[in-house]
């Protein structure tokens, strides 16, 4: 099962067996709390939602714990796993982009923003409360 988060990030939904009646898709929350006026993702930093469990063993596996509890973990590998770790460490967007600056690819910042936007939209991350 492959979801369209881009091959650059190596994001896969782990799928062995789909039980009849189970839902693959994760509810998508509104993005407005996470985005700037110009439509791009906020500068951050973010916190990982308490509705998400995750383990890091090279790849990162992310599990949505919300009802209906039928989701299977998402596998984040390579760059996606690295960005997730950056988020967990409390980095801002600029800091995350700096982490990938060595790649010297004009598309990378856009892909990072797109990935963060997707995570925020799924409710997996939220802006850290400044207080």
């Amino acid at each position: 099962m492959v979801h369209g988060l881009g091959s650059f990030f190596g994001v896969n939904r782990v799928a062995i067996w789909r039980h009849p009646g189970s839902a693959w898709s994760v509810p998508v929350a509104p993005l407005h709390a996470q985005v700037r006026q110009d439509g791009t993702v906020s500068e951050g930093p973010w916190v990982i939602s308490p509705d998400v469990a995750w383990v890091d063993g090279g790849d990162v596996l992310v599990l949505d714990l919300r009802p209906p509890y039928r989701g299977l973990p998402w596998r984040l590998s390579r760059s996606a796993a690295a960005i997730w770790e950056c988020i967990a460490e409390g980095m801002t967007l600029t800091q995350i982009e700096d982490e990938f600056a060595a790649l010297d690819d004009l598309d990378v910042p856009d892909q990072i923003r797109s990935f963060l936007d997707d995570l925020a939209g799924r409710g997996y991350i939220a802006l850290r409360d400044p207080s």
Binding site: N12, V14, I16, L61
Partner: peptide, 26 residues
């Protein structure tokens, strides 16, 4: 990309978290 195997070693802690959440929510 293809679907990745979901190894037993990777599943255990996540399954604990899932079961704990289900039980707590109920």
């Amino acid at each position: 990309m293809t679907a990745q195997p979901f190894a037993l070693a990777e599943s255990s802690e996540l399954a604990h978290a899932l079961v704990a959440r289900v039980l707590r929510d109920h």
